[in-house]
Computed example of a mutant assay.
Amino acid sequence: MEKLVLAADHGGFELKEFIKKIIAGLGGYEILDLGTNSTGSVDYPEYGQRAAETVVSGQAERGIIFCGTGIGISIAANKVKGIRAANCTSELMAEMSRRHNNANILALGGRIVEPELAKKIVKIWLDTPFDGGRHEQRVAQIE
C-alpha cells in the first residue's frame, strides 16, 4: 500500500478534502493528512515544507499539496532537497510531471482547478510511471 501525504493551507482545504475522499475510494493508498483542517487562515510555507519533509524522510512515497493557486505551496515544497513538486492545471501536465520529471509531489490550486478536473489530474498523476531512460540524467541534474 503506497503512503501519500496530503497538506493544504486554507485556500486549498476544500479541494484537499474532496481529493482525500477520491483517493480513499481508489483503494491501495494510505493517507497521511497533515492539515490544515479548516478554512481559517494559515501559512502555506509551513504545510508545503512539512509535506516535503514527510516525503524525503520516507514516511510517505509521494504527496499532494494544495493552496489557493498551487504556486506558493509548490515553491515552499521545492525548497526541500529531494523534492520535485509540480503545480499542475491540466491532465497533460500531470502525466508529463511523472513521465519526464518523476515528480514526487503534486500541487493543486483550490481556487484554480475545479474539483472534477482535479480528480482527473490526481488519478493520472497517481497512475503514471516515470519513464526513466534519458530523463534520469535530467532529474539527476535537478538534484
Rank of each mutant, 00 (worst) to 15 (best):
L4F: 10
K21D: 06
E95L: 07
D131L: 15
D9Q: 01
I23A: 11
E114F: 02
L4W: 03
A140F: 00
L4A: 13
N78G: 09
Y44I: 10
L34N: 04
G70T: 01
L32V: 15
I121Y: 01
T69N: 06
K20D: 11
I112Y: 11
N78A: 11
T89E: 15
R111N: 13
A86K: 01
Y47W: 13
K123F: 10
F18N: 11
E136G: 13
V113M: 15
A94K: 05
P129N: 09
K81G: 08
I31Q: 15
R50D: 01
N78R: 04
I65H: 07
N104G: 07
H10W: 06
D33I: 06
I31Y: 14
G82L: 14
L6V: 09
L15Q: 05
D33A: 04
H100M: 05
D43W: 00
I64Q: 02
E53W: 00
E2I: 14
E143Y: 04
K3W: 06
E53L: 14
E14M: 13
A118H: 05
V55F: 02
D131F: 05
E53H: 08
E30L: 12
F18R: 11
G28P: 10
G25L: 13
A103H: 04
E2A: 15
S38V: 07
I23P: 09
A51I: 07
L34S: 03
A85F: 00
V122H: 08
E114Q: 13
N102D: 15
G12H: 03
A103D: 01
E61S: 15
I83V: 13
I112D: 11
L6A: 03
E91K: 14
G110I: 04
T39P: 11
G11T: 10
E91L: 15
K119C: 03
I19R: 12
G11C: 12
N104T: 01
A51P: 04
L32N: 12
A60Q: 03
L108R: 11
M96L: 15
V139S: 09
I112T: 14
C88Q: 09
I31W: 09
A60P: 00
F66Y: 08
S57R: 08
N102T: 03
D127I: 08
Q59W: 09
M96R: 15
S74H: 10
E53A: 00
G132T: 02
E30P: 02
I64A: 05
E116R: 09
I121M: 08
N102E: 12
P45A: 13
L108T: 06
A52F: 12
A52C: 12
Q59H: 14
R50C: 01
N101E: 04
A8K: 11
E136R: 15
I22M: 14
G35T: 07
G58K: 13
G35S: 06
A8F: 02
P45L: 09
L117I: 05
K120W: 02
I64F: 04
T69G: 14
G110V: 10
G72T: 11
G133R: 11
G40P: 02
A76S: 15
D33C: 08
F18W: 10
G11E: 05
A86W: 01
D9H: 07
V56N: 08
I23M: 12
V42C: 05
A103I: 10
C88V: 00
S38Q: 09
L106K: 06
E14L: 15
I124Q: 00
E53S: 08
G70D: 07
L126S: 07
I65D: 03
N101W: 04
G133E: 10
E14G: 02
Q137S: 13
